[in-house]
Design a protein around this nucleic acid. Sequence first.
DNA 1: CCGTGATGAGACATCAATGTCTCACATGGG
DNA 2: CCCATGTGAGACATTGATGTCTCATCACGG
Lengths: 197, 197
Amino acid sequence: MSHMGYGCLMALDRDHVLRAAAALLTRKSTATMDEVAKAAGISRATLHRQFAGRDALVRALEALGIAECETALDAARLDDGRAEDAVRRLVREAEPAAGLLAFLYTENQLFEGEEQHAGWARIDDRITALFRRGQQSGEFRIDLTPAWLTEALFGLLASAVWLVQSGKGAPKDFRHMTVELLLGGALRRDETRREES
Amino acid sequence: MSHMGYGCLMALDRDHVLRAAAALLTRKSTATMDEVAKAAGISRATLHRQFAGRDALVRALEALGIAECETALDAARLDDGRAEDAVRRLVREAEPAAGLLAFLYTENQLFEGEEQHAGWARIDDRITALFRRGQQSGEFRIDLTPAWLTEALFGLLASAVWLVQSGKGAPKDFRHMTVELLLGGALRRDETRREES
DNA sequence: CCGTGATGAGACATCAATGTCTCACATGGG
DNA sequence: CCCATGTGAGACATTGATGTCTCATCACGG
């Protein structure tokens, strides 16, 4: 047998391929298996050995996205301190996975089936609970439902990814754009406005 | 010839087909021409007589979306009064077209080519100008670029559409969700918060 | 009643992506 | 040196969507 190097190298290869596929599919969601293989620097045959087919590849990307998202949720410690700060931590931790999430977010093929990955429900629940906690503590407004705030968080993450990819926004502004619009909105929120009113 | 009924009926048919296609493709962006035809209540042959192919159909939907968007922009009178109120009018006017816009928003196939419809640039310019006006008048915060606010507007519109379609949000809340989060964000913005600070 | 034109149904070829296979080659350990 | 394993390249069949065609039917106006 080819021994210990086996699991290690394969895992690295697999992860590398998934990263490359995610990067490509985020830009061009209709990319061919050939293109994915080329982007990953491997042949189509090898790609097909690692992932039974396009569907399996997308499923693996979904699992990767869910895993990274849950890692981000853990690292953000959503239950600690003020909910506003937890949201800021969450966006910061989720930023590396945002590209992949943006791709998965538009892959409605994943959600139209009757059976969808239970991970999304778990993630949804945790973020929804965070916004609910913020409402109960009086930090967040209560006229926007936690479900909507959760959906908006993902939507804004995806929008920020596309803005940066199109060159109309700077990558360094990613976190500030997302979190400030989600939490504070577009209106000014300072003394000058109180004077006017 | 079949005369005056010709132009009239054809136009109605064409519009009806486009509406049905938009409704279906918004839910399932990979729908087949057969499915589109079935959804529109016509045969695949007739569908193919009206639109040379799938690409032509998507292009027609794009043109329809641009036209409806520009109609909404006109009706919203973006240059009148406070920018905040203009944004509210814009969301209200754009609501009927939101489903179609959400579909086009994720159809990145439309944007990956070197040549993209000039209508999007016009629309982007008008909305960007609105946010810039709001910043110059002191209504909007200046740390979020007009380009980002424009992107976020579309992103939130699409997110709201998907939330409603998934049943996790009520259609009647559509406008309030979108405009309130875009303008005001998730944080409370009232006296209680000032007392805390 | 008869023609014109649009439609629906279906057959058919085409095409692109996919899935499967074989084979030659390189690498790395024994 | 030899063998085992993973890989790249390419041929091949399959599949599903698409584009094109014909033909029977139907509605409508003359």
